[in-house]
Every structure is written in C-alpha cells, then in structure tokens.
Design a protein around this nucleic acid. Structure first.
Lengths: 180, 180
DNA sequence: GGAAATCTACTCGGATACCGCGTGTCCGAGTTATGGTGG
DNA sequence: CCACCATAACTCGGACACGCGGTATCCGAGTAGATTTCC
C-alpha cells in the first residue's frame, strides 16, 4: 500500500460531504452509504478526526458528525496527521553507527548530528507536508462545487434530507398483547 | 512501516560505500558485514539496482558490485525508484464515481479529469520527488567525507583491502587419498 | 387534552479476525583464482 | 621450470517462511425521539 492509506482517502471524502452539508449532522453510516464504502470502516475513522478536533460528534437518533471548524481553516495536512498519526516518511535506523570498523564503539563524529541520508529524506518529507498544509478542505470543496452542475447540490440536500427525516420511521407499533 | 522502506536505507548506505571504494568491486556480503546488517537481505536488494543500471555486477571470486555511473550522476530519486519500483504516494480508488446519487451510472462530469483529492496528493508527491531528484549520491558522499576524519578513508581502504585479499585463503589443501 | 413513562431504533466507540506486503532466510547455478600434477 | 587441470570457495540470483500494519467486521453502551398510557 502507499504511504497515504485508504483511511485517509475515505476520511477526506467524508469531510468534503460534511463541508457541503451546511452544518447538518451526518452519521457515519449515511456518509458510507452515500459513497458506497464499508460503513463499519468509516465508523472506525471518525473517532480519530474527533480526537484531533476536526469534527464534533452528537449522539442518539438524528445524531452524527459536524465540522468543528470552517472548512477553509482545515488543512489537508491536519486530516492526514489526524488519521495516520505522526508517521514519518522514513525511519532512520542509524546504520552509520554499526560500521564494523568501529567494533561496537562508534566514535562521536559518526553519530553526532543527523544522518546525511536521513537529512535528505526529512527535506523531502517537509516539502510534501508543506504542499499538503497549503491546501484546505475549503479549497477542495470549492473545486468540487465548481465541477458539479448547479442542480447537484439540491439533489444531495434532498437525498440527505429524506434520509434523516425517515430515521426511526421503521419502528413497529407496540402491541399490548402478542397477536395469535 | 514508513513509505520509504528499510531496503532503501540499506541500498543507499551500500551505494555510499561503493562510491567511496574507488571503483573496486565489493561483494554484497562485504557490504553487509561492513555495516552490521543481514547479508542475505542486502543480497536481495542489489539485483534491483543492477536492473536499473545503477551498478554492474561481476561474478566469481574477487567479484562484486561497482557503480555503473559517476556518483554525481546518480540521484537519490533514481535509487528509491530502483528499489521500490514506481510506488505512488497515494492510490486513488475513484470514490467519487460510487456516489449513491448516481445509482451505479456516474455522469461524465463526475469522473472526467483527475479527482481533486488525488490532484493534491500528486502535487505533494511531485514536491517530494523533486527534492529527492535534486540530491545526488555524490553530494551525500561529499558530506560524509567532510564529516569523517582524514584517517578514516585510509582505514576503510585497509579493511576492504585486507578483506578482499584473503578471499579464498581459507581453502584447505587437497588430499589425494582420504586420511584414515 | 396534556404530561409522564416506556420502548425502539439509531448513534458512537472500542475490541476482535483476515490479508497483503515487507523483512529476513535459505538453497541452487555459475564463475574465478588457487594449488597440485605431470611433462 | 612451465603449462595444464581439477578443486573449492566464493560470487550472484531467485524461490521460500515469518511477522507486522492496514483493512474490514462485529458487538456493547448510551442517547434522543416517537408512541403509548394514564390522569
């Protein structure tokens, strides 16, 4: 798998829907079914986003998730870090200190400072993170909005509205006595 | 594990030694023991570097690997790609086309062009790759050289020289008749 | 008719299996320098 | 003394297990709304 996992992909897609939902609470199941992905897997992602302070959760019927901040103030980097944790691009194993010439006692000049190879990787990682930090969820949402026809926003609202309004409607009337 | 694997780390370290070896052939076993890592694992990495045209292999006793090009013309990106293959930073699963509102028949506007999320990731990946492409093995070697004391280069040459000169010396004299 | 109680369906949240990739190891085919052998 | 040859150790190269992280799933605790019931 690539460095950026499928969880990140799902997470950003879901947050884009939340950004378009205009502060309505959407449940993890709705978000999953809306996009045709596993509901249980999406449900596993959101607690991380909540702990990172990107969304707020509300319980019970009609509950769900909302963005905790305006979309324009949520960077893509924040989302990635929230879901994946601070996973480095490269983890240096300090090979330089194991050189056989040192016989187990590496001199100071060999282990001081940052490994040269590691330094290059850190530079590359920094470049990547800066690019992700420069893009916000709002930028993405605007780009998607511009791409879709004007009618789409209304259709989406209708689908979600119909969906949330029927929550709990499947409930069967209580019977005082069990029917024969 | 991080996106850049341990194989990449080992590979670059080995290539740095080759760059310092002044066109002497070093075997994968020598490179591994010199750095205190698994010889069999290092041996698994080098065929990839050879296929990519970064090193040349010579067989038999006194055989080993040599750089195929001057170190200043080998970029870090080439090494990474040679070992890991063209592994993307992010693989888009085209979630956008699965939207439930499309009912299995996504309209053209939804699937044309590059996914907006994917575009951001591609941009980040490009920034990372450009950084890696800007650094060459020669740059790294020069930095390491400047860090080590002047005597170290000689010690390394001595270790390697003593090592390669004793190859095959352990051979037992042939007996014409088996001893009783 | 109004208010309280109850029940249901829904929500979130964490603990639990499956699977693929990377890591690490092993063994076989081929090659070269060595040491012995014979002329 | 020199040329030849068989040997052995070394080389590369690809095929075989182990373990971890990501993917996917299930089940339990808790909550808000809707229905029912009683006054």
């Amino acid at each position: 798998m690539a460095h950026l996992t499928a969880s990140v992909e799902y997470g950003i897609h879901c947050l884009l829907w939340l950004a378009a939902a205009d502060d309505a609470a959407l449940s993890s199941r709705e978000l999953a079914e809306l996009q045709g992905v596993s509901p249980t897997f999406v449900a596993k992602i959101f607690p991380k986003l909540e702990k990172a302070g990107l969304v707020t959760a509300s319980n019970g019927l009609r509950g769900g998730y909302r963005l905790a901040k305006p979309a324009s103030r949520i960077s893509v980097l924040e989302i990635v870090d929230a879901i994946e944790g601070p996973k480095p691009l490269f983890d240096c194993q300090e090979i330089r200190g194991r050189c056989a010439l040192f016989e187990g006692r590496p001199p100071k000049w060999a282990t001081s400072g940052v490994c040269s190879i590691h330094a290059v990787m850190l530079k590359a990682e920094r470049a990547m993170r800066e690019t992700l930090a420069a893009e916000t969820l709002g930028d993405l949402a605007a780009r998607v909005e511009r791409k879709a026809p004007a009618s789409f926003s209304g259709e989406a609202q209708a689908w979600l509205g119909g969906r949330t309004s029927t929550r709990g409607a499947k409930r069967a009337p209580r019977k005082r006595e069990a029917p024969s």
